Simulated scan of single mutants.
Amino acid sequence: MNICVFLSAADLDERYTVPAREFAELIGKGGHTLVWGGSDSGLMKVVADGVQQAGGRVVGVSVDFLRAVTRPDADEMVIAKDLAERKALLLTKADAVVIMVGGTGTLDEATEILELKKHALHSKPVVLLNTAGFYDGLKQQFRRMDEEGFLPVPLTDLVFFAEDGASALAYLEAVTSTAAAESTGA
């Protein structure tokens, strides 16, 4: 499975890097491919390192103005013309999406992916990985949107909230294997 991960390129505290490394190792050991923003810095580097060290592939999608910080040993690196094309390419190359901790760029990517899914412009599973309670406030806001009728589809159809990498990956493997079985009529 190609798992797109949206996350920060910042250097972060161990409460974020340790769980990110553990999740990355699960991706690699599971034989999955990381599809990510291509950066070789901060949390993006931690995850790419973990996936590669565990035997997985890494496919980066960056933009020209960030070319200087791209990972030199990525299995594949695509340079998009702008951030909009980058997001579209990341989604195209992915079978599933995981949103990890990050700043405004990650939040922008998360809301766009969910908006596209809301309008049935993609049907890929989306997981919000709530490491160290980072997204507690956002999770509460999404629930309020759902309860008060702001979402035309149930929140559970848009996103799965996971508290750790193991439950995130278990969910993705379960839904993708179910979808594959349904598409083959098994």
Rank of each mutant, 00 (worst) to 15 (best):
K118W: 06
S8C: 03
A162E: 03
S8T: 02
V47D: 07
L66V: 09
D82A: 11
D13H: 06
T131C: 08
K93W: 04
A132G: 10
E182W: 13
L151R: 03
K118T: 13
G30F: 10
G185C: 09
G105Q: 04
D157A: 04
L138Q: 03
Y16M: 10
G42W: 05
L129T: 03
V78E: 12
M145T: 11
L155F: 14
P152R: 09
V153A: 08
A179T: 11
E115S: 13
M77H: 08
D164P: 04
G137D: 06
G56W: 00
P125Q: 13
D11R: 12
G185Y: 10
G149R: 03
G103V: 01
P19M: 15
G28Y: 01
G60C: 00
E85T: 08
G133E: 05
F6K: 02
A120M: 03
F6Q: 03
E85A: 04
T131L: 10
P19T: 13
K124E: 01
A174Y: 09
A74E: 01
G37H: 10
D49V: 00
P152I: 13
L169G: 04
S41I: 15
E115R: 12
Y16Q: 03
A174V: 06
T178Q: 11
Y171M: 01
L138D: 05
P72V: 05
F150T: 09
G50D: 09
G102F: 02
A24I: 00
G105T: 00
F23A: 04
G42N: 11
Y16R: 07
E25F: 00
W36N: 09
E173R: 09
D136R: 05
S177A: 15
L26N: 06
G56E: 03
H122C: 06
V51C: 11
A162R: 08
A68G: 10
M145H: 12
